[in-house]
């Protein structure tokens, strides 16, 4: 692809992901929020492809947009929590809290903006490197074997934790 078409893809995906994020925040129905978030994740997966990260893009779609969001939808529907407490339903002191939140986020955006547009990141674009799943796997199992093992332990701990959490006591059953 030429640099012009890459730029158009970036602008399109940036618009899609940001508007999906805004819609996620504004949706009253939690199921709609989850679906907007899936759109957001998918748009970012397209950007990963543009950024020479095809394997990460596929992982993003299968694990994030697929598995994690299905888990979210499952819990929302299990609890019947679709309509609980939208952004409205403000009472009393919460208005004050919301104003503080907006000011904090505005400061966050201004901070990022100052850093990006003053200093920038410097340096030119480097050559495209080999980022195929093979290259990524070699890097993972050569340089990052120990973190990989630790991740396995983390997942095991998560499995045990979830099993303990959600187990009903025998008296209740």
């Amino acid at each position: 692809m030429g640099s012009g078409s890459v730029f158009i893809v970036f602008i399109l995906m940036a618009l899609v992901s940001v508007s999906a994020a805004v819609m996620m925040l504004l949706s009253k129905n939690a199921v709609h929020s989850a679906l907007w978030l899936v759109l957001n994740f998918t748009a970012i997966a397209v950007l990963y492809v543009v950024l020479n990260a095809p394997f990460i893009a596929m992982v993003q779609i299968t694990v994030y947009a697929g598995a994690i969001m299905v888990l979210f939808l499952f819990v929302i529907m299990l609890l019947g929590a679709e309509q609980l407490q939208g952004i409205s339903g403000v009472h009393g002191t919460e208005r004050y809290h919301r104003a503080v939140a907006f000011v904090l986020v505005a400061l966050l955006v201004v901070g990022f903006g100052v850093v990006i547009f003053n200093g920038g990141t410097g340096g030119g674009e480097t050559a495209v490197i080999d980022a195929s799943p093979v290259a990524l796997g070699l890097r993972l199992f050569e340089a990052y074997v120990l973190p990989f093992e630790v991740t396995g332990i983390l997942l095991l701990a998560a499995i045990i934790g979830v099993a303990v959490f959600t187990r009903r006591k025998k008296k209740e059953a």
Binding site: A30, I44, G86, A101, F112, T121
Partner: peptide, 27 residues
């Protein structure tokens, strides 16, 4: 890369806004 970092910053800020303003734990 500045464009990507800018988009990343915007999405992060929107996420932070969601954490601070929404009251539904799942959202």
């Amino acid at each position: 890369i500045d464009w990507y970092i800018g988009l990343s910053a915007i999405l992060f800020s929107l996420g932070a806004l969601g954490v601070l303003t929404r009251r539904n734990a799942i959202i």
